[in-house]
Design a protein around this nucleic acid. Structure first.
Lengths: 328, 328
DNA sequence: CTACTGCGAGACAACGTTGTCTCTCGATTT
DNA sequence: AAATCGAGAGACAACGTTGTCTCGCAGTAG
């Protein structure tokens, strides 16, 4: 019925040699007489033979699938997408393929997808942890894991993250230098290490003068509401530090809506598209998602190649980009 | 040395049953006595046994890897990322995993990655064609392929694309209705079906009055330069139709730089982040990338399930979103 | 002219799982 | 009470490939 793909046996028959000889030619072994090798290659060509990676994997000693898994928060978010792309580029250079998944901060999905990738025998995993306990990894996932963007809880491994504390502190000091004293904080759930670290940087920069803070902001409308709240509140902030891009964009929208975009200073953590074309252009602490991804990939490939040694924590520097909104 | 993962044999020994009984329990067959099944499940638990998908795949009759390949232009581009995410969501609902790759409009990469995915026995492929001849697909890729965003050349299959001609024509008519007569076109290489179709829509709407057109625009700076050129040229356009988001953003930047963003009308094809927050807000013909991805995924899964029948071409409608820049 | 060496090539087992066949044993039918 | 049946469980082969072993043969040494 269905025309089956040819196997090594078919090639062997067509070339008039033994199956094993075909295997040798396909694997580039040099111990085959040139004329036989030529016949085999011809047969491979005409039959359009392609090795069955599953079977080969099963028998081979090294057991490599040349595939890695990448689990990020949301592959359609610009930050995750940039990390993803950088990983893909590193993988491609090595002929390695990439299985992807979006976690949407859901620990169950994190657990399930990590386990599923392990079952599929991926050679390694790059994970942006949701913040939940990862003790299941040690049990179920027997491959190198590198964490990116967020610190893991309940597991150890190489970790590549931004300089969140100093980046956030720098942003806030930038506002302080402009004379602001009542600076509000908008950020995500503190379960996430990024939120914790950025909030810490905010607090360090302000000392006892820390202003109103709203956490747990994930979608745009929540961020917009929170912006209105911190401006209306008793402390009536004159400046806002938004600790992730969704919060920043929410703040931009709310300020615009209130007509106060030129009166309230705003610095966001994580750059976003078009930030420089808005009015005012938005000052941000830019992360380097491509470098995060690239570095994580390099770490992972080192581990896959057998590098051992204690887990490394690599910090990728952030850059303050003053554009106008933070200089009011 | 390396602690090997347990196999079915290990589980069988631990549970005191035969290997085949373990296989039956793992695969949820009902012909196993409850007490034996319980023993097996306990052993699976304590040994943390996970089936070897490669081996199972090799022997099974249906030969499904429950993995599909997705090849898009650039997973970090917002449009591709949204398509990707929609596909992933459909796949997840079916417990299917996704291998991704970015093609960057490179036919060689398209060919290599398609072949590599075929070797990996993916169950199907969703492809945004680069525009090059795809006759190699029929030869080397024996799985269902669904095309998304762009029409294939040299291959057939279900195809899910936007209503490019009518969308572009609508954009241009919108400008004509505002009194514009000299409307420039900025677009990508006409090798891409999207560029061809959008240019066709532009020409249809304008008839013999078509204005200056610049093709082959891919990066921002080229689009900026082209914008300056069509404004300075002999026909001195009063409006611009930008046929993809990179061209639109380039035009926005150039107009801003020239200080003419409130004098020259602009409509872009494909929405982009923050378009509504710019000054002026940018009028666009919005595509529905999520629906494109979802529809492509549904088509592919139907084909994987065995649906036969002639290739379908599905058009996803576009929506004109007037925001200001096109109403000057 | 026999014995040894080395290399090319095939035979065979094995990887971890599932499909098929067979066997046992208790229950039902006549 | 003998024959039949069915369900549960194991033995065995097979999936497509690679690792290992062996064999044959040409070339060389004694």
């Amino acid at each position: 019925m269905t025309p089956q793909r040819p196997t090594m046996n078919d090639v062997a028959r067509a070339a008039g040699v033994s199956l094993k000889t075909v295997s040798r030619v396909v694997n580039g072994e040099t111990t085959v007489a040139p004329d036989l090798a030529a016949k085999v290659r011809a047969a491979v060509e005409t039959l359009d033979y392609r090795p069955h990676l599953g079977a080969s994997m099963l028998r081979r000693n090294d057991r490599r699938t040349r595939t890695i898994g990448v689990l990020l928060d949301d592959v359609s978010h610009p930050f995750s997408a940039a990390v993803h792309r950088a990983i893909e580029d590193q993988a491609r250079a090595r002929g390695i393929h990439v299985l992807t998944g979006s976690l949407d901060q859901d620990p169950a999905r994190e657990r399930d997808l990590a386990a599923a990738f392990a079952e599929r025998q991926t050679d390694g995993l790059i994970l942006a942890p949701t913040g939940a306990d990862l003790d299941h990894l040690a049990f179920h996932v027997d491959m190198p894991v590198v964490f990116v963007d967020r610190l893991p809880t309940g597991a150890t491994g190489d970790t590549v993250v931004s300089t969140n504390v100093s980046g956030a502190a720098g942003a806030v000091r930038h506002l302080i230098a402009r004379g602001h004293r009542r600076i509000a904080y908008l950020g995500a759930n503190l379960r996430l290490s990024t939120a914790r670290e950025r909030f810490l940087g905010y607090q360090r920069a302000l000392g006892h003068r820390a202003g109103p803070a709203v956490h747990d902001l994930h979608d745009l409308t929540a961020a917009e509401r929170a912006t209105v709240a911190v401006l209306r509140g008793p402390s009536s902030a004159t400046a806002i530090f938004a600790a992730h891009s969704m919060a920043t964009i929410g703040a931009v929208r709310a300020l615009r809506h209130l007509g106060r975009q030129h009166r309230i200073a705003l610095v966001g953590f994580d750059d976003f598209p078009m930030a420089d074309l808005l009015d005012p252009p938005i000052t941000v602490v830019a992360q380097d998602p491509a470098r995060l991804g690239r570095t994580a990939a390099l770490s992972l490939f080192e581990r896959i190649e057998g590098h051992t040694g204690p887990p490394r924590e690599i910090r990728i520097p952030t850059t303050l980009i003053p554009r106008g909104s933070g200089e009011l």
